[in-house]
Write a protein that binds this DNA or RNA. Structure first.
Lengths: 185, 185
DNA sequence: AATCCGTCTGACCGATCGGTCAGGTCCTGA
DNA sequence: TCAGGACCTGACCGATCGGTCAGACGGATT
């Protein structure tokens, strides 16, 4: 069986995942071919497809931890309203965006397309609830516009500053978000 | 010569341009094929390439007016600093983004890629100066982060709200931008 | 020695991409 | 009547895409 020392098994699976994360973050999901990833790893494209059923499976495995944190944030948001919802959304989403900068970068501009795939269908509803929370559950168009500005601004800014340390990015983002959001009346 | 009534010349050129604008705004530049555009117009792909040298020429002609306005804003920004630069950048960019929502939508996520092409090379420098103006020409990282948040947030929000009337979107955006920007010391 | 299995690969597939080209149609001016 | 040019098209091109498949290789089990 599996007794004895850990077999010197090649960790190709993890290497492919890491290389895909790096390439996706630079050239996006659609803009990165399986050939690109294979070249970065140093194996053939067929090897990539041996370890992952298809390109989308590669994306799913890469996004899974970020999605789990997003769902946890959505759960904490349930039942909150007004300023409390704004505060939870601000702290929670800024933290998420900073920690998963690479994952956010890879779906730049492809967010609407990728949401079509059934594997990410529920993300759309979560992001709608997140916008509502940023707006303090207000129906005023100006509140929703401000919410979308900060949501999109955080995501894009995190994707842009990939080298800055977390402890520098997080407080600056939190400060601008708290300033930008429309106070609930 | 060209005397007499305007010849009933088919305005295919304009129709292609309009259809391309619509398709690009929905599926992006890379995500829209010349076949898609031809189908939307009701002509062949070869006809599209008869009226436009190549796909990039179609994009250039579509972006030209927006780029002209952006360059005018950049010119107005020259020589300004501090709060004055912030105010000019805010009003100018919000107005630009609202007016050219469709053009902004079409380069969602493809902005970095498209900037590589020599035709749009100088746009990168302009956007850097725009970020600096939003930051009130401050070197503080938090000011630059706030500037990028509002810049990206405005662009993405405009691309998202394509149906809202200009007069509703513009003041709401201006309000959130003025709130969000870090005041110059 | 024979077998099995995890790992990996080159060759190949159909589809689609942006782009080219020869030629057809139709109007106009000489 | 004829030549010419603007307009348009189907057929085709090479490249690249995601994905499939039969089989090669090597170490462990029997």
């Amino acid at each position: 069986m599996l007794e004895g020392m850990a077999r010197a098994v090649p960790e190709t699976h993890g290497e492919i995942l890491a290389a895909a994360a790096r390439r996706f973050a630079v050239t996006g999901y659609k803009g990165t071919s399986l050939q690109d990833i294979a070249r970065a790893v140093g194996c053939s494209k067929a090897t990539v497809l041996y370890h992952f059923a298809n390109k989308e499976a590669l994306l799913s495995e890469l996004m899974a931890p970020a999605i789990a944190v997003l769902e946890a944030l959505d759960a904490r948001l349930a039942g909150t309203t007004g300023a409390a919802a704004q505060e939870i959304a601000a702290e929670g989403f800024v933290d998420l965006a900073v920690r998963f900068r690479r994952q956010i970068a890879l779906l730049r501009g492809e967010f609407p397309d990728l949401l079509q795939q059934p594997a990410f269908a529920h993300i759309q509803q979560i992001s709608e609830r997140l916008v509502a929370a940023f707006a303090g559950n207000s129906d005023r168009p100006s509140a929703r516009i401000a919410a979308l500005v900060v949501l999109a601004g955080i995501a894009e800014t995190c994707a842009e500053f990939i080298d800055i340390p977390d402890d520098e990015l997080r407080p600056a983002l939190l400060a601008v978000v708290r300033r930008a959001l429309e106070p609930v009346t």
